[in-house]
Design a protein around this nucleic acid. Structure first.
Lengths: 154, 154
DNA sequence: CTCCTTGCAAATCTTTTGCAAGTTT
DNA sequence: AAACTTGCAAAAGATTTGCAAGGAG
């Protein structure tokens, strides 16, 4: 069976790009931290652990390239940095995020919750949807429990 | 009847802030460009037209303050800048956006399309939703028509 | 050789901050 | 006077770019 990195390599090749060692190191970090919503800086630091000679600009250039090829999705949670999420293979749509405003935890929702909403938007606004971004801000269950406990003891 | 700016003034006062001339000038620009998704820089330039003595830092500080009071919502469309949208009065939730990837047009959707989705998220993920951001990227009807015409003449 | 890619440093862009001066109460 | 607010300039942080050098075909 073909590995994930092999397939990404092919995606690069079919767009006339090479999978250089630097690009491979970057992709590997993304694969190893799929759930982590890394910033460019985060990726850079992790890449550097194994390949100290790689420069920050190269990481930025690679992430830009991967975004262009839709291997990753660039997301912005409202803090000043862009974050990069590997697109799940075969995923027609980008997944959604829950951000806890108390503890900052980010949870992913893979379910496509927007099917019905998208039908409405395409019909009523005559808008051909290509991609979406859905983020909920709120309080995760862990923080809800913390608050409940505090209320009892206060 | 009470003006929009009067109500914003009260919101400021109830949080112990003043509606200084600088803040008023900034709010007025936002009111006059409700549909425009202005960046901080945009707001600054428009404010400067009428009040040239106002500094960029003050505009940033005012926008931050208004965001905190939920008079405006800070949004990020993925280009490097934050944009500021006046929150509709009485709107329980933030409105949604359609961004055309051909012409860059941004359309607003005021309808709350997410009621059902939010119920599911609150129930299945035990997540208490406080706010949301929903952006669709795609092709607006105008650009769809352009493409259709080109196909015919090609 | 030619084209692509990289590393480094410098540049750019957005946003924040320190601080002295001005305002309001 | 005490607290808040402002303008300016400097600082900070994220990202991009110029360029000379390295590497693959």
């Amino acid at each position: 069976m073909e590995s994930r990195i092999e397939r990404i390599k092919k995606q690069l090749h079919s767009a006339s790009y090479k999978l250089t060692p630097q690009r491979e190191a970057t992709v590997r970090v993304l694969l190893e931290h799929e759930e982590d919503h890394l910033s460019a800086e985060d990726v850079y630091l992790l890449v550097k652990e194994k390949s100290p000679e790689i420069g920050l600009a190269t990481v930025y250039r690679t992430l830009e390239l991967l975004t262009e090829l839709k291997v990753v999705d660039k997301i912005n949670f409202g803090d000043g940095v862009s974050r990069f999420d590997l697109r799940k293979e075969g995923a027609a749509h980008f997944h959604h995020h829950l951000i806890c405003i108390e503890c900052g935890a980010v949870e992913e929702i893979q379910d496509d919750l927007l099917e019905d909403v998208e039908k409405i938007v395409e019909r009523d606004w005559r808008f051909k949807i290509k991609d979406h971004r859905l983020i909920f801000h709120g309080i995760c269950w862990k923080c809800q429990e913390k608050t409940d406990i505090n209320k009892k003891t206060d």
